[in-house]
Design a binder for these strands. Structure first.
Lengths: 191, 191
DNA sequence: GGCTGTGTATGACTCATACATATAAACTAG
DNA sequence: CTAGTTTATATGTATGAGTCATACACAGCC
């Protein structure tokens, strides 16, 4: 039926517009907090959430940057007193740890992000939010699987940035098994 | 009730993650087509959809670039044979028009965008899509109004990029009055 | 015909990133 | 125990998109 077709098209278009504007607003809110390059907020959030004390290489793969790009980024963050390089047990590796300022800033970043997101939801009723959440989870699963497939199909192209960058792990419900992204990747053993 | 609260938080987080990944994928799909800078696809789409023959200044405000940045962009697009500068009736102005190649590329860009978006929707039933579309429209209205308010509040900061860049006007239903963004701005006389 | 505003282009610079290479530490083989 | 290989980080150089300040070109008005 034609109605279904055009309805899907309208939904697709609205999804594109909303994704663009929400991502724009998140990035703007988040860069206002940490105004070093586009990757800096994601780096701080990642360190705060699960990577504190990690290596530069780990950080680079999370951000989808080259190693050298990540080195420069850590340099900038270090110059602002947001992170520190400390020696790792492995002599050649480096542990990147958040300073107190860095952690505060990471928290601010996550709060700014959440503020823009809840504001977008503000006109929806609780029921609508629940329905929306279900659809979002389904779509996240779909997209996560699609990404994994693309990556394994032609692995020559550049590393993809981490899908959950800027996520708030507590809100996402990862530890309770409610994160669709995490569930999708673990069932197909992708990182 | 706590359940509602945490449910909203989960929804917000999922919205952030999905927006980020969908925007990433759109941009990736679209930059693969036109590998000139991040703004090039949006410029071609805008010219194709509604701005063909427009001036550099108009383009710059649509893209949220400075005028000079837009001049460089038009230079690049021109060097690739995607657009042409032709004299406008006003001697100082310049009409930026798509070449045949440029228009083809714009169409490809919109198709690539639509492909990533429908793929994200693919696991949803028709009913779910309809519900989702309603929620998306509501959220688009909310966000559009929030943007307009911010813009009027402190108009000193840099121009915001156009919310509907990369939109497919046919799919969005703008001409039938179904575009929530357009409806929101016209009721508050913003552009 | 000379001002004043509007539209476009150019030059010098910034900044984040990539690419290629260098250094240094750890593992492994003989 | 020394030599070669792998892994991790750092640096030098280049690129490319964008900004700011400015210059140039035309239009309308007095």
């Amino acid at each position: 039926m034609l109605r279904t077709q055009s309805s899907r098209q309208h939904a697709a278009n609205a999804l594109g517009a909303l994704s663009l504007v929400v991502a724009d607003r998140m990035n703007a809110a988040v860069e206002a907090v940490a105004a070093l390059g586009p990757s800096a907020p994601a780096a701080l959030a990642a360190l705060h959430e699960f990577l504190d004390g990690g290596s530069v290489t780990q950080l680079s793969s999370v951000l989808g940057l080259t190693h050298s790009g990540t080195v420069r980024l850590v340099d900038r963050l270090g110059a602002e007193g947001l992170v520190e390089r400390v020696g790792a047990p492995d002599g050649r590796a480096v542990s990147v740890v958040l300073t107190r300022r860095g952690r505060r800033m990471a928290v601010q970043i996550l709060q700014a992000r959440e503020k823009t997101l809840t504001s977008a939801l503000s006109a929806l009723t609780s029921d609508e939010v629940d329905n929306l959440a279900a659809a979002l989870d389904t779509m996240l699963t779909t997209v996560t699987l699609a990404r994994a497939e693309e990556r394994s199909a032609h692995s020559h192209d550049r590393p993809q940035p981490w899908l959950c960058r800027l996520c708030d792990f507590a809100a996402c419900g990862r530890s309770e098994g409610n994160c669709p992204v995490n569930n999708a990747v673990t069932t197909t053993n992708q990182s």
